[in-house]
C-alpha cells in the first residue's frame, strides 16, 4: 500500500525547481507536493497562490488557513512567526523548518526529518 504525505513548501514563482522562499506569510506561492512516504517518489505537484502575500494584516494566519484548506500535512520553509505557528498547530500541520534548497531536493530532506 502506498502511504502518501502532502507537503507544502513556501515558494516564489512555484514548482519543483523553485527555491524555498525566505518567508512564510508573505511567500507569493505554496508548492504542494504529494510524495510516496516510502520511496520518496513525487506523485503530484500543485502550485497555489498564498492569500497572505497580498493581505493587509494576519498574513501568516491566512497562509496557514490556505494550507489547511488544501489538507496539507506538513509545512516546510522558514520558521513561522508566533501567530502562524499557533495556526499551523491548531490545523494539525507539522512544521519542518527548512531553507536553502530547491523544492525537488527538499522533498528528500523533509522525509528524512519526519522519519
Amino acid at each position: 500500500m502506498i502511504m502518501v504525505v502532502r507537503i507544502a513548501f513556501a515558494t516564489g514563482s512555484g514548482g519543483l525547481d523553485d527555491e524555498i522562499y525566505s518567508r512564510l506569510g508573505r511567500a507569493p506561492t505554496f508548492t504542494i507536493v504529494d510524495v510516496d512516504e516510502k520511496t520518496g517518489e513525487i506523485l503530484n505537484v500543485k502550485v497555489i497562490e498564498n492569500p497572505g502575500y497580498t493581505a493587509g494584516s494576519g498574513a501568516g494566519v491566512k497562509a496557514a488557513q490556505a494550507l489547511g484548506d488544501e489538507k496539507v500535512q506538513v509545512y516546510a520553509g522558514p520558521t513561522p512567526g508566533p501567530n502562524a505557528y499557533a495556526a499551523l498547530q491548531y490545523l494539525g500541520i507539522k512544521v519542518v523548518p527548512l531553507t536553502g534548497y530547491k523544492v525537488r531536493d527538499a522533498v528528500k530532506k523533509v522525509l528524512e526529518m519526519l522519519a
Partner: peptide, 16 residues
C-alpha cells in the same frame, strides 16, 4: 479581513 479567524475543516473556528 485581518486574518484573525482560523478554522480546520469540521472543527469550530479559533480567534487570534
Amino acid at each position: 479581513d485581518t486574518g484573525a479567524i482560523i478554522m480546520a475543516q469540521g472543527r469550530p473556528p479559533f480567534v487570534f
